[in-house]
Design a protein around this nucleic acid. Structure first.
Lengths: 184, 184
DNA sequence: ACCTGAACACCGTTCAAGT
DNA sequence: ACCTGAACACCGTTCAAGT
């Protein structure tokens, strides 16, 4: 039963990769699974829930790919890069994350797990979640523009996406480090 | 004729404020203007175009509200805050900006205008657009989570939105300043 | 337990026809 | 020039009915 949900989410991500988010609908999704659209409702509550699970998958991929044991600054940098890579690996992923209404049950566990490497590094939990949230927000927003069908080409000829993302990321993390070295 | 388009966009923003983005449809929008949905197509090309114009409005409000003549670092900080304020003043604004496919004609002029205060401050255009883009991305991403119906309450009890946004913003801008003081 | 078939209300968009 | 009325194809979702 859990397996069926994961099959649905995987098919949904593949469908968005092929057709784009605007071409993602339950009839086409059901067709990929050799089933009718109404059959999906046995395994999943709504289209919104599918979108939420897609977004969760993108966060988890980032968490799994991010290098561990590199200190809290290294973790912030690594998770940011891994999150961007996760998003760039999936078409319209930034839109998916933006419109996803993550389930209340998923949120605490997901945030705990992501902030854990920082707390272990000696950062208080409030600061950890706050800084982590800033890096995630920056990365998501960055990919919104990088994936924008109308903005991508124009932006690309003004600066290199990876290089500029990196500059913003390191600037932010360096600024956080400077912040924490001044107040005891 | 231009006036009609602005009336449509204003009504659309008001409708989203009342009903949310999911309740925003052309029949309801037309009703607000005492007209049928099909009549909108005389003044505007599509629903997507209306969304693009809504997003453009949000960027312009930020630009107009941001303080001028405060140096390039002050401009980055001021524009970031003004953009966040503009977004928070409109329901579901982050979603609007994310899904908006800005028209190609608007992009160059809009970006030129936003980067102009930095270029006047002695920053080369490529760096200006890059740093500006990072601040915009961070702010948009931040408000995505701040406006998220399922995340807002959980995040609010972990940290103060305004204070944490401010810490991320100043960290990034301070990092940019440190960057530029080292390489000549 | 799991799926189909048919239907429901709703949506963006088009277009002939009105004024 | 600007709008209406009616229609089109499509969508998420529900639910009785099948197996």
């Amino acid at each position: 039963m859990k397996l069926e949900q994961e099959r649905i989410v995987a098919a949904a991500l593949a469908l968005v990769n092929r057709e784009g988010l605007s071409g993602f609908n339950l009839r086409a999704l059901a067709l990929m699974l050799n089933v009718r659209a109404s059959a999906l409702y046995w395994h999943v509550g709504s289209k919104d829930e599918i979108v939420a699970r897609m977004a969760k998958m993108l966060y988890e991929r980032a968490f799994d790919a991010a290098p561990k044991g590199v200190g809290w600054q290294g973790w912030l940098l690594g998770f940011g890069r891994a999150f961007r890579a996760s998003l760039l690996g999936q078409r319209d992923s930034a839109q998916i994350c933006t419109m996803a209404r993550l389930l209340d049950t998923n949120i605490p566990t997901l945030m705990e797990r992501i902030a854990a490497p920082m707390v272990e590094g000696g950062i208080d939990k409030a600061s950890a979640v706050s800084m982590q949230g800033a890096v995630i927000a920056y990365t998501l927003g960055w990919v919104v523009y990088e994936q924008s069908s109308t903005l991508h080409d124009t932006l690309e000829q003004m600066y290199d996406f990876t290089e500029s993302y990196e500059r913003g990321l390191t600037a932010m993390v360096r600024g956080f480090a400077a912040d924490r070295s001044k107040p005891p």
